[in-house]
Amino acid sequence: MIKIEDLVVRYGAVVALRGISIEVEAGEAVSVIGPNGAGKTSLMRCLAGLIKPSAGSIMLDAQRIGGKAAHIVSRQGVVLVPEGRAILAPLSVKQNLQMGGYNQPKAEVKASIDDMIALFPVLGRRLDSAGGLLSGGEQQMLAIARGLMAKPRLLMLDEPSMGLAPKVVDNILDALRLVAGLGTSILLAEQNASLALDITERAYVLVNGEIVASGAAAEVGEDLLERYLS
């Protein structure tokens, strides 16, 4: 469904991605695992249209989306839940969700909000609170729910587990499994390898802007274990 080829991302003289190729099929859950500074966020932001690729191509089915503005990419169904959640702090939880469904018909936005409350019941109890007043875990749930409001074909998540208690992470992983089960493709960027491998079928390992390993989650997991243990 989405095919990334030889993608290069630069910030001036800094090269964040050195020609990487990644593919996600429809309905597939794929992870990109890498340490700090590997280039995960650069990849996600580039796919979402927030930064322009310096070289390479990003194809969504037969359409070239590399270099398009972020709001257009989002309308095509490629939606990013950004690193650090990016909750619209002064807006209420409900308004955050409504903005997630900005390009959806009004009636569907209403129905989707109910779906999101079913997925994350905490949000239902906080609908009128300002988004900035939620706890870190609640904000991550809101960020994911807000992303889902756009009815994405591909949901991209940049380190959703960052800074959260294990129990909250479990909660979020359950929700993501549910979402994946309903047929939404997922691209997950994570530092936490075991977590990522737990919910995705395939994985890429990104180090220093380069893919150093890829394959089925189980294989990549063994590969990583060997590396760290030997």
Partner: peptide
């Protein structure tokens, strides 16, 4: 509040 976030939401 955030131009990038607004864009990500399709605005």
């Amino acid at each position: 509040y955030s131009r990038d976030t607004g864009e990500l939401l399709g605005i």
